[in-house]
Design a protein around this nucleic acid. Structure first.
Lengths: 228, 228
DNA sequence: TTGCGACATTGATTTAAATCAACTTTTTTA
DNA sequence: TAAAAAAGTTGATTTAAATCAATGTCGCAA
């Protein structure tokens, strides 16, 4: 982790929940934020290492993934601005159960865990906010578990495309990830990912131009994603 | 859910964390527990239905599992006495993201969600207790995700056997589940589960007599479980 | 400007696991 | 207690997906 004084790093725009809450409580000073800048490909946090602070992604995209002993990674989520990293320490996990790395240059704001926990404990509204975010992430992982075990390639790729479209809030988006990573998001090989994309394009369900993807028929895509 | 007045149902032995905490806080009366008895095979809670109360398993074993649209289930956990069901509602999930059914006759104690949440909010110690339990369940699911995607049959069955041995705190135990369910715990087919068991027996790593299993060489088993 | 490396694509082959099928053993229940 | 149902086992076959291999494309740095 490097604090790049030379790089003009974007300040936390004070609209994130942690800041709003701290301000309300008059604890703004208490947070002592560090603004940290990561270059593309840099690791923001590493699976298995101690969680020392909560990180808010201010600008750029990142991937959250888990890695096994050998074999390839599974991408759990693509993180976009305003997403948190490391909240799980509030729930008693001392170490990161996942890694996060920058898909493009990223600006982050990092605040000490202790400070975060104080606010969590003192502010019921904030506590519920975090609890709910954490609860729904559990539901997401369970969905992933099922889809990983029961859906086949087409279904998994369709699911990933719908996920990205929801994330970027548009049927037309530019991939921030490589084909290999799209495979890791669906937990399949790069080659089979490409084959599935080609198939869906030939069936005119999507259109592809390099990293630019348009979902032309989301209903059919949703049907493919649901099929087991 | 049936409250069987006719069946002699075991009372919550007052040693569970919820009771101990409520007592300490003078809120014991507030809980209004219902003692509910389930016959073998009965559903204790169903995936997708509203969570109305927290359930404590007092006697008997149960399985917690998720089901996809078609295909077979994945067993997340085997529940043993003192385990909780439905705590996730504290974290904002209104519906069960899993089902639980009784592997044998089960005694449970059920308390209202509202009451539970009051205690959670008013008692920091209890809150941390639940948070940590919830946090480590997330870590468990992530492990499951990796093992499901990257380990092969032998490794997954070895892992399940080690899990059961830890659960029952002994290298020698009687399975509370069928071969099919052991398969669901490892997310593989019944047939391949049997084949893996037979193999491990032939290599004298375990011994099998019907539902009775002895882990003879846990080191080798651990090595097999780790191999990808 | 060119040549290298990362990314992308397509086809052929291999492989792990599911499924199908037949059968035995155990448990349940009528 | 006999019949039926459920559970367990083993072998043969099929299938989905990984891997291997070859080749194409793009961007960028020497």
């Amino acid at each position: 982790m490097r604090i790049e004084k030379s790089v003009k790093c974007i300040d936390c725009p004070l609209k994130c929940d942690i800041y709003l809450t701290a301000r309300e409580m008059g604890m703004e000073e208490f947070l002592e934020p560090a603004y940290v800048y990561y270059k593309k490909y840099e690791t923001i946090c590493r699976q298995g290492s101690k969680i020392k602070n909560a990180t808010i992604l201010i600008q750029g995209n990142a991937k959250m993934f888990v890695s096994g002993h050998c074999s390839r990674n599974i991408i759990l989520n693509i993180l976009i601005p305003s997403n948190y990293i490391g909240l799980i320490s509030v729930y008693g996990l001392p170490d990161y159960p996942y890694s996060v790395s920058a898909l493009e240059d990223c600006h982050t704001c990092q605040i000490d865990n202790e400070a975060l926990e104080q606010i969590y404990l003192k502010n019921e509204h904030f506590m519920k906010l975090l609890n709910h975010a954490f609860g729904s992430s559990v539901a997401n992982i369970m969905d992933k578990l099922i889809s990983l075990n029961q859906k086949q390639i087409r279904g998994r790729v369709a699911e990933s495309l719908l996920y990205l479209s929801r994330l970027y809030d548009s049927n037309s988006f530019k991939l921030s990830i490589t084909r290999r990573e799209l495979g890791e998001l669906s937990a399949i090989s790069e080659e089979n990912t490409v084959r599935a994309l080609t198939e869906l394009r030939n069936e005119e369900i999507i259109s592809i131009d390099g990293r630019n993807i348009v979902l032309k028929d989301t209903d059919t895509l949703a049907r493919i994603s649901m099929n087991c």
